[in-house]
């Protein structure tokens, strides 16, 4: 590990100033420290955003939604009564990820920023355009079981590994950020994670110096909440496929349904047109398969991950119809 300086910010302003001058924010450190040990990330300075005032709570908004402080831990968020009662999708998604120990450390803001688990990204001896722009993509040469089938590019087929983000995408979350000048921005989670294109090293819409302060959720949509995660062992593994969904199905008809896939794309994969195609249709396999076709239009495998196309379809049907 390379030497680095460490400081603690006591206000968002502090943190934003530090970040603007090149410090890397660190909260739980459950991802960043691993990457630093392998020298995949080599920041000169870290600024802890673990002790920012008032960002460790979940509150109800005037509109009937919730605001979640960026420093709320994954464990606290999943266990919060407001979330369990009104946004069980979010609770379930968080609890499907990592381990209890990691969830105790990881934060909401940090989870949104967690980086891909692509094997080649982690192998400093392999080519990776995300880690070292222009070096190529080792994942296209094989060993891509965990990689994307949609949303990737020539340059990068890495997957966003977050379970929480899948739920946030389905729930239409908004990410609130603030920079060193005090300017605040509200970024819809739909545009928070970027597709790789030719610049896979750019992963989010955050500008240098911006600090995530809160995530807000509108009132929960009508319907039953589902989070189904399919993986290579029963727990403590990243998703091969996950489905986050809220479905209002009555008397054999889909009144409304929304869903996003995790584990298949560089960001939570939600296609609103696919959801529209299900509305007011019979709740049967053909309806779901049609919606899945729309959602996964253009999907392709790279060898080891070919199976994900079939698995996504079957998992979506199983999630919505059983």
């Amino acid at each position: 590990m390379k030497d680095f300086a460490f400081s603690t910010a006591h206000s968002v302003d502090d943190a934003a100033h530090a970040a603007a001058s090149g410090a890397r924010p660190i909260a739980g450190g459950t991802n960043l420290l691993d990457l630093m040990k392998l020298q995949i990330e080599t920041p000169n300075r870290l600024v802890s955003v673990r002790r920012l005032p008032r960002l460790d709570r979940v509150t109800v908004t005037d509109e009937g939604g919730v605001r979640i402080g960026a420093e709320v831990t994954n464990a606290a968020l999943a266990a919060h009564p407001l979330i369990r009662q009104r946004y069980p999708l979010l609770s379930r998604a968080i609890l499907a990820g990592a381990s209890a120990q990691i969830r105790n450390m990881a934060t909401t803001g940090g989870n949104l920023l967690q980086r891909t688990r692509c094997v080649q990204f982690y192998d400093m001896t392999d080519a990776c355009n995300k880690r070292q722009p222009g070096s190529g993509c080792g994942a296209r040469m094989g060993g891509n079981r965990m990689n994307a089938i949609i949303g990737g590019s020539e340059a990068c087929i890495a997957v966003n590994p977050s379970d929480m983000s899948v739920a946030l995408r389905v729930l239409d979350a908004t990410v609130h950020v603030q920079d060193a000048t005090g300017r605040v921005r509200a970024i819809p989670v739909a545009s928070f994670h970027l597709l790789p294109g030719e610049t896979p090293e750019r992963e989010t819409a955050l500008q240098p110096g911006e600090i995530i302060t809160e995530i807000s959720l509108p009132p929960p949509p009508m319907g039953v909440h589902h989070y189904r995660k399919v993986r290579d062992r029963t727990s403590y593994a990243f998703a091969l496929i996950s489905v986050g969904a809220v479905a209002d199905i009555r008397e054999g008809r889909i009144v409304s349904a929304r869903f996003a896939f995790g584990g298949i794309a560089p960001r939570p994969w939600r296609v609103e047109a696919a959801e529209a195609a299900m509305a007011n249709r019979p709740a049967e396999v053909a309806t779901i398969e049609h919606a899945c076709d729309i959602a996964l239009e253009g999907a392709k495998g790279y060898g080891d991950n070919d199976f994900k196309i079939l698995l996504a379809r079957r998992t979506l049907v199983a999630t919505l119809l059983t």
Binding site: R117, V119, Y122, D123, T125, D126, G138, M141, G142, G143, M146, D232, R233, T234, S235, Y236, A237, F238
Partner: peptide
């Protein structure tokens, strides 16, 4: 039977080299 394997990549490198990717059973299994 169900979980554990490593693969050799096109360069001859063992593809899985940490316990996040080299899967062995967890208690829940």
């Amino acid at each position: 039977a169900l979980i554990e394997a490593n693969n050799v990549d096109h360069r001859g490198q063992m593809a899985m080299r940490d316990l996040a990717n080299y899967h062995v059973p967890v208690l829940a299994d």
